[in-house]
């Protein structure tokens, strides 16, 4: 998944000579928290709602609107902007957002702003990836950390004619295990669980019934 696929390409930008008051209006009207600052499409800085808050007068002490009208965006903008390229992986964008603790990344190609990607976009994509928006059953397994384990589980699911909505495989708690999370398009996954356990794999979720009784 690349940035181009999930970025918002209708970018609302602000000019460095615009007033801070104008920028505040722009953010409020569009319900957004970041404004790339551009001159003729070229990125020269960025301002966020946090920058706005730090220059706005406190609601407790009354206001000095003159100051907001007279101050220009270029006077308060961040000039060092962390950006991504449209062909970067979504994972890379997520890593940058996380490591630099920023709320958004302008997407820049040939020095022009072609899109914007926010932390909310990244999270929405992940929600879609794990299939949370489709009806399904959640199955979580602990597998030995060696080749062929995913294929073994997928083979069992296939034998039951069940479609996999999403699959996430990642390192487990211990070095010698991996965790596999599947979302299956099926209501009744009892037989799949039984077969997976018969194969010797550990089912972490759904938790099996606590008390044992006659059935």
């Amino acid at each position: 998944m690349i940035v181009e696929n999930i970025m918002n390409s209708k970018v609302i930008t602000v000019h460095p000579d615009n007033s801070v008051a104008q920028a505040i209006d722009l953010m409020r009207d569009n319900n957004i928290r970041h404004l790339p600052v551009t001159t003729e499409g070229n990125l020269i800085g960025i301002i966020s709602d946090r920058d706005m808050r730090s220059v706005s007068p406190s609601i407790l002490t009354g206001d000095e609107p003159e100051l907001l009208i007279n101050t220009k965006v270029k006077d308060i903008m961040q000039k060092q902007v962390i950006t991504v390229h449209p062909l970067d992986f979504l994972e890379e964008a997520a890593r940058l957002i996380y490591e630099y603790k920023v709320g958004c990344l302008p997407v820049v190609s040939q020095e022009r702003v072609v899109g914007i990607i926010t932390e909310a976009d990244v999270l929405r994509s992940m929600v879609e990836w794990v299939g949370l928006l489709q009806p399904g059953a959640h199955l979580e397994l602990e597998l030995p950390n060696r080749p062929g384990m995913l294929a073994s589980v997928a083979g069992i699911v296939q034998r039951h004619g069940v479609n996999i909505i999403s699959a996430l495989l990642f390192p487990g708690k211990m070095d010698n295990t991996q965790t596999l999370i599947l979302r299956l398009k099926a209501l009744d996954i009892r037989m799949i669980i039984k077969d997976i356990e018969a194969e010797g794999h550990k089912v972490l979720w759904p938790l099996q019934r606590e008390p044992d009784y006659e059935r």
Binding site: A186, L187, P206
Partner: peptide, 8 residues
């Protein structure tokens, strides 16, 4: 939905 179909 953490435990059971349809997960919503």
């Amino acid at each position: 939905g953490r435990f059971l179909f349809p997960g919503t």
